[in-house]
Amino acid sequence: MNKHPVSLTVNGDQYDLLIEPRKTLLATLRDTIGLTGSKEGCSTGDCGACTVIIDGKAITSCLMLAVSANGKEITTIEGLSSNGHLHPLQQGFIEKGGYQCGFCTPGFIMASKAYLDEIPNPTEAELRHALGGNICRCTGYTKIIEAVMSAAEAMRNA
């Protein structure tokens, strides 16, 4: 069919792929590249489970065509730890019990990372507002906010 050459840099690794235009970036990450950390919750931009970071900005990867991501640098949840050390956000979610089933967690962590890189010292109200595009059906959010606030502190002190 009409496949297009697409070059993606995902977590530092380059992938040169041939992709049908209708494939979303999320489907490409999960099915073609095999990085299944990013989740498909709603497929309509509402839940944030598919959040990845492109060129420093958090986006919902279910709404982006892979062909539109050509040439871009993408970070997924798989790219956050370094040398076997968890990212402070990952550590925070473990320590504060920020997840139950865990389906929403990659999206929350990626959205939080991009936000904290921009605004390292938010108030709790600002953080809640900034994470409004991420939905969790298990935790009731309190533990998630605690996890991100404590990670923000750890990141500021690092």
């Binding site: 931009g45 944030g48 959040t51 492109i54 900005k57 958090a58 986006i59 919902t60 709404l63 982006m64 959205a111 991009a114 936000y115 900034a130 409004g132 595009g133 991420n134």
Partner: peptide, 9 residues
Amino acid sequence: VGSIQIRHL
């Protein structure tokens, strides 16, 4: 409009 993720698109 939407969320930060939506507003980046």
